[in-house]
Design a protein around this nucleic acid. Structure first.
Lengths: 341, 341
DNA sequence: TTGTAGGCGTTATCAC
DNA sequence: GTGATAACGCCTACAA
C-alpha cells in the first residue's frame, strides 16, 4: 500500500529543490551530470512516475480520446475499435468507449458526460435513432466548444468535421459486378433496416442500378425489397421468395443473408449452383455459415486507424486551419462458398 | 471556438473572490442568497463546468476505471462490457477499455500504461497466455500500489483481490443433467483450448463426472476428447466422430459446437432426434445456427455489473479492511432446437 | 457574509 | 548549476 512518490519527496530526501528535480528528470542540460545521475537513480529506485493529473491540469490535455459506438457486438464495430485502440496506444493515448445501443438519448447523455470530462476529442458513429431524428445539437455543441470530432461510418453533412466513410456506391457496384461474372442475371437486393433514412441505402441502390446499366443487364425493380428490421422471419421476405424469380441475392447485412439462405434451401435451391449470395458486412456468422457467405467487407481496423489518425492530428495541430477532410475506405471482396465462378 | 469558463473568470467579471464563487456554486449556506443567485445565474449562462483535471489533481481520483479484456468480439465479453459500462456510468464513472488479444505482452503493456495514468481501479480478465505462463507480476505490482483490482471470469488464486467467477462445475453438471432428462445416455464432452491449464476445464470435467455418478449413468472416459484449438477441422475430432458412439455432445464453446453439428449431419444423424448438442457460451452463432443451439450461458451483463459494483465499492471505501470477496455468477440454461425433451 | 492563503504535482521563467 | 516563484483550476481552513 505504498503511495506514489512525488518530485517534492525526492527533493526533500536529496535535499535539493523541486525544480532541480524536475529538470533532472527531464535530463535538462543546465544541470550537472552528477545531480542528474543522483536524482534519476533515486527516482528509478522508488519507481517515480509523473502524476498524470498534475500534467493534465497544466496542459489541459489527458491523452484520452472518447469513442462512441452504436454497438459493440457487431463485428465491424469491434474491429473498428481494435484499429482505434491500436493507433491510439501506439501514440500514447488511451480510449474511453461508450456504447449508445443505437439510442439517441444514450448517445446524447454519454457524449455530454465525456465532453465535460477528461476527453481530448471524439470519434463517433451516430446511432440509428440519431440519424432518423436528425437532431445533432449535442454534437454541434461539442464541436463549438472546440473539441475535435471525427465522424465515421455513418456521417452527416450537418456537422463540419473530419470524417471516415465507406463507399456504399462502389460496394454495391462490386457485388453486382461479381455476380454478373458468375453468370447471374436476376439479382435481388434485400435491404434490411429500411427505416433508416441514411444515404447509405440510397448509395447502395444507385450502385446496384449503375452496375446493371454498365453491364447491359435488364433492371427489374421488383427485385429490390425493403424489410423493416434485420429479422427476416416476417411475411414480406417469405412472400418475396415465393413470388419473384432470381438467381442471386445481395443482402445488406449478414443476418438477413443467413436467413435468406435458409429460405432458399427450403425452396430446394442449391447454393451457389442455383442461387448465389453476397452480403455487405463480414462477421463470424458469414464465416461459419453453411455454406459460408461471400461478402463485400469493410476493413474495420483500417477505418479505426484512419479515424484515430485524423483525430490525433487534429488534437495535436496548433494552427486551427479548418480544412476538414473526408477519407473514403474502399471495401474488399471476400470470396467464400456462397458464390462461385 | 470558445474556451471553457473558469471560476477565476466568473470572479473577475462579478468582482468577487474566487472562493466566494466556489462556495456559491456549491450552494454553501454561509453565503447570502443574493450572491449565490448572481453567481449561479452567471455560471449557467456561460455554461460553466468544473474542470475535471483540477478536480482530479485535488482528489487524486479521475472517476475512470480501466477494463482489460482478452477479446471484444466474443459475445460474452461484449455483454460483460455492457454490464460494466452500465453500472459505471450510472455512478458517474467512465470506462477505458483495453484489449489484450489473449497476449501476455499486450496485457502487461496495457495494464502498465493505465496504471501510470488516470485510472482509479482495474477490472481484468486475464489473457490465455498469461494464465499459461502463470506470470502475474504485473498485476501483483498494481495491487501493491494500492490500486483496486477486480478479476473476473478467469481468476487466479495468486492474486489477493475481489473476484467474479462463473461456476464451471455446476454449468457442466447442469448440461449433463439436462441431456439425461432428454433420455440421452452416451454424452460426449468436447474440450477445445485444452492447452489452457486453467481450473475452468478441470471443474467442468468434474461436474460432468459427478452428474453421471449422481444419475447412475455409466461413465465412459473415451467420450471426453480434448482438441487444441477452437477449430474443429482437424483430425482428432473427425476420427472421434468416426470412432465413438454417442447420442449427445457438450461443447466448451459455440464454434466447435457448430462444427461438430456439421460433422454429425454429414454422418447422416438428425439433430436433436439422433443426437443433441449443448454448448457453454451463448452468442450470435448459437442463436442463428441451424438448428439453433441450446446453451448453458453466462449472464455477462450481470457479471459486468457485479464486477463494477465491487470495484466502485473498493475505490470509494475509506477503511482498508482487506476482506476480499469472490462472487459466483450462476449460469442458466437456454433451450433451443439442438436439444429436446 | 466575504476574502485570504495554501496546497494538490508539475513545469517554465527568471533570478541568483 | 541551482533555486524561488508563479501558474494550471479548484477547494477549504481560517481570517476578517
Amino acid at each position: 500500500l505504498k503511495r506514489k512518490i512525488t518530485q517534492k519527496q525526492i527533493a526533500r530526501e536529496l535535499d535539493i529543490s523541486i525544480s532541480t528535480v524536475s529538470k533532472a528528470l527531464k535530463n535538462s542540460d543546465e544541470l550537472s551530470q552528477d545531480t542528474k545521475d543522483k536524482v534519476q537513480a533515486f527516482a528509478k529506485f522508488y519507481n517515480y512516475k509523473p502524476n498524470q493529473f498534475a500534467l493534465s491540469l497544466r496542459s489541459q490535455r489527458s491523452n484520452i480520446i472518447g469513442v462512441i459506438l452504436p454497438g459493440i457486438s457487431h463485428h465491424l464495430y469491434a474491429s473498428i475499435f481494435t484499429g482505434i485502440e491500436h493507433y491510439a496506444n501506439k501514440h500514447d493515448y488511451n480510449v474511453i468507449v461508450s456504447v449508445s445501443h443505437e439510442s439517441y438519448d444514450d448517445e446524447v447523455a454519454k457524449i455530454e458526460m465525456l465532453a465535460n470530462g477528461h476527453i481530448d476529442g471524439f470519434i463517433v458513429s451516430l446511432s440509428k435513432e440519431t440519424i432518423n431524428k436528425n437532431d445533432l445539437e449535442h454534437l454541434i455543441h461539442v464541436v463549438n466548444q472546440g473539441i475535435p470530432v471525427v465522424l465515421f461510418n455513418r456521417p452527416t453533412n450537418q456537422i463540419d468535421c473530419d470524417k471516415v466513410v465507406v463507399n456504399n456506391f462502389t460496394s454495391a457496384y462490386k457485388a453486382v459486378k461479381k455476380l454478373i461474372e458468375c453468370r447471374k442475371k436476376r439479382i435481388a437486393l434485400i435491404i434490411s433496416d429500411c427505416h433508416m433514412n441514411s444515404s447509405a441505402i440510397n448509395d447502395k441502390v444507385e450502385g446496384y442500378v449503375q452496375a446493371h446499366l454498365d453491364h447491359g443487364i435488364p433492371l427489374n425493380e421488383n427485385l429490390i425489397v425493403k424489410i423493416s428490421n434485420t429479422d427476416v422471419s416476417d411475411y414480406t421476405i417469405k412472400s418475396f421468395f415465393g413470388r419473384e424469380n432470381f438467381d442471386a441475392v445481395i443482402c445488406v447485412d449478414e443476418m438477413s443473408a443467413i436467413q435468406s439462405m435458409r429460405l432458399a434451401k427450403e425452396k430446394g435451391m442449391e447454393i451457389p449452383k442455383d442461387i448465389s449470395f453476397i452480403s455487405f458486412t463480414d462477421g463470424i456468422l458469414s464465416q461459419q455459415a453453411y455454406p459460408s457467405l461471400s461478402v463485400i467487407a469493410q476493413d474495420g481496423e483500417k477505418m479505426g486507424e484512419m479515424a484515430a489518425m485524423m483525430l490525433l492530428e487534429r488534437i495535436e495541430s496548433t494552427n486551427k486551419e479548418e480544412i476538414y477532410r473526408t477519407e473514403i475506405i474502399e471495401s474488399m471482396y471476400i470470396e467464400r462458398e456462397s458464390t462461385l465462378n
